[in-house]
């Protein structure tokens, strides 16, 4: 039953212990990506939390972008309508008032708490898997990286989804309020910047949420991780 070709590779008895190689980046990216895809519904929940928070922030940002660009070309009647609808100008520009800023920060804080919670659950569910990885020769850094990359993927996905939704809602609501001028003056570079910021913010929030659970998981002795019930 045992074929000869396998016999050749058997470790001869030696007293030296070598050092484990660090996995190439590509392998870590591949494993973490697959690992996220097979748990798609699970990770979509985390992603949705992120997307909602980013959507809110992007809605506020892009709303001001559109208003500023409309203002520049608006007639006085329209300008009056904009001011009458409750938008405040600060130093000749529409920008986040302290109230808006606090709202955005609060929504982000709630989001981080939600993500830490979701990630703690997700990592705890996978203690056995982590223990198995370590039995097979995974370094702690591998375990951390797997979770960090999964967090980044989720962050990027949530960031894109959230910014697109936020911008869409802001545009539609301003079109309804001000008419087609909101589309004609749609500030493309400003919007691109909003998406970019949304992406960065989402990736950062996701990382914040995942780093602590991942560190805890990676430092466990394999036996302890394997003992946990699933």
């Amino acid at each position: 039953m045992c074929s000869d070709s396998l016999v050749g590779g058997w470790e001869s008895v030696s007293k030296s212990v070598e050092r484990q190689v660090v996995l190439p980046f590509g392998q870590v990216l591949r494993i973490s990506f697959n690992s996220m895809v097979v748990r798609l519904s699970r990770s979509l929940i985390t992603t949705a939390t992120l997307a909602l928070a980013i959507a809110f922030v992007a809605y506020i940002w892009s709303g001001y972008e559109i208003l500023n660009s409309v203002w520049a070309q608006a007639e006085s009647a329209l300008r009056e309508r904009i001011l009458a609808s409750g938008h405040e100008m600060i130093e000749g520009k529409f920008g986040s008032s302290p109230k808006d800023r606090w709202l955005a920060i609060l929504s982000l804080i709630v989001c981080v708490v939600g993500i830490v919670n979701a990630q703690l659950m997700a990592v705890t569910e996978r203690f056995r898997e982590i223990g198995t990885f370590k039995c097979l020769g995974a370094l702690n850094s591998f375990v951390v990286r797997i979770f960090v990359f999964e967090g980044i993927y989720q962050g990027l996905l949530g960031g894109v989804a959230g910014s697109v939704v936020g911008i869409l809602v802001a545009t539609v609501s301003l079109v309804l309020k001000l008419g087609w001028i909101a589309i004609r003056c749609w500030p493309l570079p400003g919007m691109a910047l909003t998406v970019l910021w949304g992406l960065l913010l989402a990736a950062l929030l996701s990382l914040l949420g995942v780093i602590y659970p991942a560190l805890v998981a990676a430092r466990m002795e394999p036996a302890v991780a394997l003992r946990t019930e699933q």
Partner: peptide, 11 residues
């Protein structure tokens, strides 16, 4: 940690 991982992996 590196040697331990190597041990678990290879030995």
């Amino acid at each position: 940690a590196y040697e331990l991982a190597w041990l678990r992996c290879r030995k």
